[in-house]
Nucleic acid binder design. Structure first.
Lengths: 327, 327
DNA sequence: CTGTTAGCGCATTCAC
DNA sequence: GTGAATGCGCTAACAG
């Protein structure tokens, strides 16, 4: 910057003013400085600016891994964040709790003006520390500290909708594939609860043997689990899979056994992936409404960045999308 | 840091030395300093360190959008980069050329020790500028400047393998779904060339009417294009789809017409997505071997970061995975 | 093994 | 409308 100043015959401060778009320079000076900038190929040093200004104009979205469903949300978040002249960058924590803590060093997080965090294994105490160090919005299924912003899907309602739909179409032995009985709140246990709620509302009871855990939330594991369920001899005429990936694994298992969908077994997933429309006659699913999730998260984050201290816990709505895998 | 130094009765330099793990402090001093650090909850200011040290220990992967296939590659890249004590962050360029340039401001890129860049609309001149400003490895299909590192899949060979496989299984009217005749090299035109190569090697000619463009590389567009191809009355007994997403769209169109796969029409995709194993009897595809791509990219980047100036253009191999959509 | 000096590149403050 | 002084928080280089 001092090179530019010298070459343009002004002080460093004038260059700085002009580059930051402050309206204090005469048109002549401005043009001269900008032409010198172009001529010398000068680029501002953002690290120095960040240090001096105390902000980076960037926001981090921190996720367990890049290949999950986060991509869909991240693109929407990026647009919203760019609208307020900030920059979204993604970081990953490496899904195990050990690495999660390292990746989440406060020092790194403080490099951002705000942080959107989807974390699994972090304790409340650590989250509180992070929330004190940097404007923070938590994403995800777990119960979270009341004084931190938190946005999540309405997992239970989505599961309730899915199960209610299956019940209304005549299914009476509905397995919940990937469901779990976790002690703490999790995606899998919330969705299992919604499955129970729908039964209760219909005056029906649930059979815990129809809660079918899945090893890794991958298609192959779901297919294996579905095969075992079919082999078990338990009557099954409906499957609510807690994610679409699992639902596709289930469809594969049903297909290889020659079991017709939806005539013999109906299937509902959760996520409304693009691919749902393209398997056989389509997979009925729950649309997670990522747009609203993203908009809410950004709104809360910007409140915090602006100095607000209020914390909200927002649950965004989901909806049922009926396709050919249910009657 | 000066607070810590004062509290521990040492100078800031001693604190700095200890926090950077330099082996120059006595065990007693080290413990005292570390306990004060813990007590005060001190966290180093990375922005200041970055400014002073002239490096950030982080590498950017810059992609057009987060929801593409990049997630799969990014997780592998992250592991490799973390192995050398650096940090991978993702940024996106917003896939249109206008925004691409803004997002790629040299100032931002210089905040990273190295950059892995997958860019579509950037000119050679701009790429050269970037390559001069920061250690750079280009990813992607286009032809790239010779003096810049570049890694890409062997698109043509993958397409050739796919088409050769279809020919060997008896297909003689093979459409290339999503293929294009681009003036410059692109994924779609390289794969179309591989399709032509396979025909030529078999002593067969190709029909340009079987090069079926697709609007947006989405399943719905592929389904539409496939329907139109079937309606056109052209004989078709094989489809090489330039991506698996397109292949799934094609399978949907064939399914709704009651055309049996692979008996009447055989289908091969490209990407070897997880879902390929789970549609009907499986989708034959080309495995892109992302592991090797990632390893190569990181190797080249680290050479550059270490001061090397040699540029390599590496084409990583791909392989055929046969499933039920071909005979 | 520990401390002093100097400065990374920029922006805030306030004077002119 | 422009500029001088000052320091953001840290570390390289070197002295002791």
């Amino acid at each position: 910057m001092s090179d530019v100043a010298r070459e343009a015959g002004v002080s460093v401060m004038t260059v700085s003013h002009i580059l930051n778009g402050r309206p204090r320079a005469s048109e002549a000076t401005r043009e001269r400085v900008l032409s010198v900038v172009a001529e010398l190929g000068y680029e501002i040093n953002l690290t120095a600016r960040n240090l001096r200004a105390g902000r980076t104009d960037s926001v981090a979205l921190i996720v367990p891994s890049f290949h999950d469903y986060f991509g869909a949300v991240a693109d929407r978040l990026a647009l919203l964040i760019e609208a307020s002249n900030r920059h979204l960058v993604l970081e990953r924590t490496a899904a195990n709790a050990q690495h999660e803590r390292e990746a989440l060093s406060l020092a790194r997080l403080r490099m951002y003006d705000g942080v959107l965090l989807s974390a699994y294994g972090i304790s409340y105490a650590e989250l509180e520390l992070i929330g004190k160090a940097v404007p923070l919005v938590l994403l995800g299924e777990r119960e979270m500290p009341a004084d931190l912003n938190h946005v999540r899907l309405d997992n239970e309602e989505g599961a309730r909708l899915a199960t209610e739909h299956l019940l209304s179409r005549g299914a009476r032995h509905i397995a919940v594939l990937g469901g779990r009985f976790d002690p703490e709140q999790s995606m899998a246990s919330s969705r299992r609860e919604g499955w129970e709620t729908a039964h209760r509302e219909a005056g029906l009871s649930t059979d815990p043997r129809l809660v079918v855990p899945v090893a890794e939330y991958a298609m192959a594991d779901a297919r294996t689990a579905m095969r075992q369920l079919l082999d078990s001899g338990l009557p099954v005429d409906g499957v609510f899979a807690v994610t679409d990936v699992l639902a596709h694994g289930a469809l594969a298992a049903l297909g290889e056994r020659g079991i017709r969908v939806p005539d013999e077994v109906q299937v509902v997933g959760f996520d409304d992936l693009d691919v749902d429309e393209f398997v056989s006659s389509g997979l009925t699913s729950i649309n997670p409404n990522h747009d609203q999730l993203a908009a809410t998260a950004v709104r809360l984050l910007e409140q915090r960045i602006a100095g607000g201290t209020a914390a909200e816990h927002v649950v965004t709505p989901v909806s049922l999308v009926v396709r050919g895998s249910t009657r």
